[in-house]
Simulated assay, not measured.
Amino acid sequence: MTDDHEEPPADGNDAVSDDDDAVRDDAVHDDEVGWSDGPGRDIVVGLDGSVDSERALHWAVREAVLRGTGVRAVLAWASAGPAQDGSRPPPATSPEHPRWTAQWILNEAVDRVRADEPYARIVARTVFGPPVRMLLAEADGAEMLVVGARGATPSGRMPTGSVSLACLHGATVPVVIVHGGSAGWEGHRPIVAGVDGSASSQVALAWAVREARLRAARLRVVHVWTPPPALGDGAGAAGEEVFRDAARALLDDAVRVLRGPAGAGVEVEPVLVWGGVSRELISEAARAQMLVLGARGRGGFAELVLGSTSSQCVAHAGCPVAVVRGAAGGAALEGPKVSANREAGRPRAHTSVP
């Protein structure tokens, strides 16, 4: 990929456009290169030079093809020199100025992905400011935000990087965490959606239905239930039966709408599982293209994103994990929509295996 760097002005200051679009939330956006189709619901990917973030870009490019949109690859950088007021970058002539390094890292990653994905439609941009704040601002109104599980900073040694977790906390759009080694495009594998009866899990289920339809993949709708503790008075078996029946009814309610137009074209498999929520969902994810969860739930999914269930799934699932935010008034399940024919040379969705 070729990129046209501007030489720093003679006075040593970065050129800053007077156009209002150049500044958002006191951030200076510099060096935009690549394809752009104007404003729209594109997929935003956070890059940082790590292997996982580059895998995330690969994943996002293929996802964008299915959704008929583009990808915005974003790398946030900040000065290592004296503290700034945050309104603009430090002088480009400063030895601490990492702007050119950031652009080089970004260009190298995008070039490698374009070599593997020649149909890629990518806008590559660097932004100045704290990575989490910049990524959340870029992703506002986007189709989704995609990040790698582990970053390039020392915290990247953790199971899931601090930037990824912070994005899960603050994003208003679906966030997909891509793990190293998790391709997420095995055609014979299903999409797995965890449901718990909450409004948020229903919104996530609607998102998973669309994903399964785009990929021509099976959709496994999974509800995990845990029996009550043994009482020791002979009532344990009867109590467990009541809990099992209630869990089955919850799962049936979740998938009932999918038997109509909302689930047309998607092979739906309801799955009732006994055990610990995190453990069973991670087990399901080991055989899936993607695990989809609601951002807030009840019961086993209580305080998802901030709670242990999501933290465990995001950290240990063997496939990309999508966390979808929603509420009672969120998106409802919809029937299929006819999409335009794919352009020649783009990948096709895999045929599902019964």
Rank of each mutant, 00 (worst) to 15 (best):
M1N: 08
M1D: 09
T2D: 12
D4L: 14
H5E: 13
H5I: 12
E7L: 14
A15M: 10
S17I: 04
D20S: 12
D26I: 00
V28L: 12
H29V: 13
D30E: 10
S36G: 11
P39R: 11
D42E: 14
I43A: 04
V45F: 06
V45I: 07
G46L: 06
S50G: 05
D52Y: 00
W59R: 02
A60E: 06
A60C: 05
A60V: 03
V65E: 15
R67T: 07
V71A: 08
R72M: 09
A76R: 02
W77F: 09
W77P: 04
A78L: 07
A80L: 14
G81E: 04
P89L: 06
I105T: 15
I105V: 15
I105K: 06
D111S: 15
D111R: 14
A115V: 10
P118G: 09
T126P: 03
R133W: 00
L135S: 10
L136W: 02
A137V: 12
A142K: 07
M144Y: 01
G148D: 05
S155L: 14
R157C: 01
R157K: 10
G161N: 09
C167Q: 08
L168D: 07
A171Q: 09
T172F: 00
T172C: 01
V173K: 06
V173F: 04
V173S: 03
S182E: 11
W185N: 11
H188Y: 01
G197I: 08
S198M: 04
A199S: 15
S200F: 01
A206S: 15
W207V: 01
R213A: 14
A216E: 14
V221W: 02
V221E: 03
V224T: 05
W225P: 05
T226V: 08
T226A: 13
R244G: 02
D245G: 08
R248S: 13
L250W: 00
V255A: 05
P261S: 11
P261F: 11
G265E: 14
V268M: 07
G275D: 06
G275N: 04
G276C: 02
V277L: 01
S278T: 15
E280Y: 00
L281K: 01
E284I: 01
A285P: 04
A285H: 01
A286K: 02
M290C: 13
G294M: 06
G294A: 07
G297H: 10
G297W: 11
L306F: 13
P320D: 06
A327M: 00
G329D: 15
A331R: 15
G335Y: 10
P336H: 13
V338E: 15
N341D: 13
G345V: 06
T351E: 12
P354A: 14
P354W: 09
